[in-house]
Design a protein around this nucleic acid. Structure first.
Lengths: 77, 77
DNA sequence: TTGTGACTTCCAGTCCGTA
DNA sequence: ATACGGACTGGAAGTCACA
């Protein structure tokens, strides 16, 4: 049974986030500001370095104006 | 602009999780075991007391055999 | 504009119990 | 089967300076 390792989960989310951010034509800085998060924190999430929690996932999806279901639509760890 | 408070986000997820767990006809204990999480922790998540992280969200969705998109389908904080 | 290392604070997550 | 408490450890949150 292959449990997706933590790193792959984080990377998959980082990829989904970056993709959604670029679709919205926002910089990391702009996204961070709208989500009220630190710019470097958002960057580290996109790079798959952070095991982000639900609250911040919601903040980012709201800043991107997309639903969580959409954000996770192509999420495949 | 009304930002959804942390408590409401956690409660909304707890509700979604409980609903999905009951659909799968699993007890908290069975779900926790399949997801390799602590029984009391899963209970506290369902009660909206925890800001769960991405890795454990994925563990639970896998244990429930549903996609994240489905788990978040009716997620409305 | 983004990556990165270093850092502290505090809560996610575990484990034990009771009812 | 579930809720809920206490005590504990690891790790997420959050920030900054600099490349």
């Amino acid at each position: 049974m292959s449990v997706a390792p933590k790193e792959r989960i984080q990377q998959a989310f980082g990829d989904s986030l970056r993709s959604a951010r670029l679709d919205a034509e926002l910089s990391q800085e702009e996204l961070a500001h709208r989500a009220k998060l630190d710019r470097s924190y958002v960057g580290s999430v996109e790079r798959g370095e952070r095991n982000i929690s639900l609250e911040n996932i919601v903040k980012l999806s709201r800043a991107l104006e997309i639903s969580l279901a959409d954000l996770f639509a192509d999420f495949d760890p």
